[in-house]
Amino acid sequence: MITVIKLGGSLLSASALPACLDTVERYPGNILLVPGGGVFADQVRLAQRQWGFDDVAAHRMAILAMGQMALLFNSLKPDFALFDSVLKIISLPKVAVWSPDIDELDEAGIVPSWDITSDSLAAWLAGRVQADALLLVKSCSVDEGAALTDLQQGGVIDVGFVSFVAGAGYKTRVINKDRFLSIS
């Protein structure tokens, strides 16, 4: 069983990241861990407002922010393997952390826009690896019974997410970090 788990970058600010990584380690099956961009992506947004550079540059910088978080995850959990390309996943370890490759995402036609964040990229990855499940872990409050469109309108998930999971062959869940931490 392959589960893609996206840990929101805000978990770093909420100081819940180490506990969430421990939960990932205990989670059943093989895990592909997708980091949010967190404070690194926030800096990209601020710089774009200040300097007015285009969305293509901002998108690429935000992907690099995800890479920075992947390095942070790997530093906290050295046993978690790092990978940057779907093509490089030959033998799936228990937990692997994705540091997305900009060129691979460009080749896949991922539109450079703030409408597509690590949420949608996690959904794209889940589809590419034919995952069984996608789990988004958020630091904000999440109504687990809400439709994805309601979570989208509420700003819990990004604008592009619903289209990325439409027709997906995997189960999708969006949960709050406290709920995730209660999973044994």
Results as ranks from 00 to 15, higher is better:
residue 167 G to A: 09
residue 7 L to M: 09
residue 44 V to G: 01
residue 4 V to G: 04
residue 172 T to E: 11
residue 150 D to P: 03
residue 142 V to Y: 08
residue 77 K to P: 03
residue 42 D to Q: 07
residue 98 W to P: 06
residue 102 I to D: 10
residue 79 D to A: 06
residue 46 L to T: 13
residue 123 A to T: 13
residue 119 D to Q: 13
residue 67 G to K: 01
residue 181 L to W: 04
residue 97 V to C: 07
residue 161 F to H: 09
residue 35 P to I: 04
residue 14 A to M: 06
residue 9 G to A: 05
residue 165 V to Y: 02
residue 158 D to H: 10
residue 18 P to R: 05
residue 156 V to N: 14
residue 137 V to T: 14
residue 13 S to N: 02
residue 11 L to P: 10
residue 172 T to K: 04
residue 80 F to Q: 07
residue 63 I to M: 07
residue 65 A to N: 07
residue 169 G to C: 02
residue 53 F to T: 04
residue 98 W to H: 03
residue 140 C to W: 05
residue 106 D to I: 13
residue 107 E to P: 01
residue 162 V to Q: 12
residue 14 A to Y: 04
residue 160 G to S: 12
residue 108 A to H: 02
residue 184 S to I: 09
residue 137 V to I: 15
residue 27 Y to E: 02
residue 128 R to S: 15
residue 13 S to P: 00
residue 135 L to Y: 07
residue 162 V to C: 13
residue 1 M to P: 13
residue 142 V to T: 12
residue 95 V to M: 08
residue 22 D to F: 06
residue 131 A to D: 06
residue 154 G to A: 15
residue 161 F to L: 14
residue 42 D to S: 07
residue 17 L to M: 08
residue 89 I to T: 12
residue 33 L to A: 03
residue 7 L to H: 09
residue 129 V to H: 13
residue 22 D to K: 14
residue 103 D to T: 14
residue 12 L to T: 03
residue 76 L to T: 01
residue 115 D to T: 11
residue 164 F to T: 08
residue 107 E to N: 11
residue 21 L to I: 10
residue 169 G to A: 05
residue 120 S to D: 11
residue 33 L to T: 00
residue 65 A to Y: 08
residue 179 R to A: 06
residue 97 V to W: 02
residue 63 I to K: 00
residue 8 G to W: 03
residue 84 D to H: 03
residue 33 L to W: 06
residue 61 M to I: 01
residue 7 L to F: 02
residue 174 V to N: 09
residue 44 V to F: 04
residue 26 R to D: 07
residue 3 T to N: 03
residue 100 P to I: 02
residue 138 K to P: 09
residue 85 S to H: 07
residue 146 A to P: 09
residue 3 T to Y: 04
residue 174 V to W: 03
residue 13 S to A: 07
residue 21 L to K: 08
residue 94 K to A: 06
residue 45 R to Y: 06
residue 184 S to P: 15
residue 47 A to D: 11
residue 109 G to P: 12
residue 5 I to K: 00
residue 174 V to S: 06
residue 48 Q to G: 01
residue 107 E to I: 12
residue 130 Q to G: 13
residue 136 L to S: 08
residue 86 V to Y: 01
residue 138 K to H: 11
residue 17 L to V: 01
residue 74 N to S: 13
residue 121 L to Q: 14
residue 34 V to H: 00
residue 52 G to I: 00
residue 64 L to G: 10
residue 74 N to R: 12
residue 40 F to C: 11
residue 86 V to N: 04
residue 24 V to R: 08
residue 114 W to T: 14
residue 10 S to P: 08
residue 72 L to Y: 02
residue 62 A to Y: 05
residue 20 C to L: 10
residue 20 C to Q: 03
residue 61 M to V: 00
residue 117 T to H: 08
residue 159 V to G: 05
residue 62 A to K: 04
residue 77 K to H: 04
residue 53 F to G: 06
residue 80 F to C: 11
residue 42 D to C: 04
residue 113 S to P: 01
residue 132 D to I: 06
residue 2 I to V: 15
residue 145 G to W: 08
residue 28 P to S: 14
residue 120 S to C: 12
residue 52 G to L: 01
residue 47 A to I: 09
residue 177 K to A: 11
residue 78 P to Y: 00
residue 57 A to Y: 01
residue 111 V to C: 05
residue 117 T to M: 05
residue 106 D to V: 11
residue 133 A to P: 01
residue 82 L to D: 06
residue 153 Q to N: 14
residue 10 S to I: 05
residue 129 V to D: 13
residue 141 S to Q: 13
residue 139 S to E: 15
residue 156 V to I: 15
residue 122 A to S: 15
